[in-house]
Simulated scan of single mutants.
Amino acid sequence: MADFLPSRSVLKVCLPACLLNNGEAEQIRKSKEIDRCLSREKTFVKRLVKILLLGAGESGKSTFLKQMRIIHGQDFDQQAREDFRGTIYSNVIKGIRVLVDAREKLHIPWGDPENQQHGDMVMSFDTRSAKMANGQLAKTEFMMYFSAIKDLWADSGIQNAYDRRREFQLVGLTGLKGR
């Protein structure tokens, strides 16, 4: 450019401000802000690691993701804990039912014969209900069975069945011995 003309950088700053009305200048400012946000988002997405976990049902895919979340310091907030509560209740009911059924099929006697009533009570629970099907059992429903489940878990017959869990499919309760 000739020496008497302003440089390009001066034109970039002065020209829009001088020739545009307030609305157009505001639109340009918003456009630049959006471009900066998109650039930051693009950088974030490039750093994002995506994993495809394949496996049979109940093979531990969700558990793996939850453990990774905890290991990397992203603990569960109160809402996430509340969301998992119904699933946990549902899994405990299903698990104790499997143990009661397995105890009978494996011909393991009750440690305390009075636990037969608790076993019958738990086995009468309707696992086909809509709440059980989507794993969202309410706390009030679970608490009706809590003392029976606690007594059953303490029974030596149920513990014996649990020790023999390799002989039947026990979903979601592995690693609980002694709790």
Rank of each mutant, 00 (worst) to 15 (best):
V100Y: 01
F125T: 13
R69M: 05
I93V: 15
K131D: 13
F64H: 07
I93E: 04
K61F: 15
K50H: 05
A102T: 07
A133V: 14
L53D: 05
A56T: 03
H107N: 06
R85W: 01
S90H: 04
R36S: 08
S39W: 04
T43S: 00
P109I: 03
G86R: 12
Q117I: 13
R69K: 09
D126R: 06
G95P: 07
F84Q: 10
F125E: 13
H118C: 13
D101S: 15
P113R: 06
A80G: 02
D101H: 05
G135C: 12
H118M: 03
H72P: 06
L38Y: 11
I96G: 07
K42T: 10
D83P: 00
R36C: 05
L65I: 10
G111V: 00
F76Q: 01
A133W: 01
L99I: 07
E41S: 14
W110Y: 15
V100H: 02
L52I: 05
I71S: 10
I70N: 09
W110D: 00
V45M: 12
T43M: 07
N115D: 08
H72R: 08
R36P: 01
D83E: 15
R36A: 08
G60D: 04
R103T: 00
I51K: 06
I71T: 12
W110P: 02
H72K: 07
A80S: 12
Q74F: 12
Q117T: 03
D126T: 02
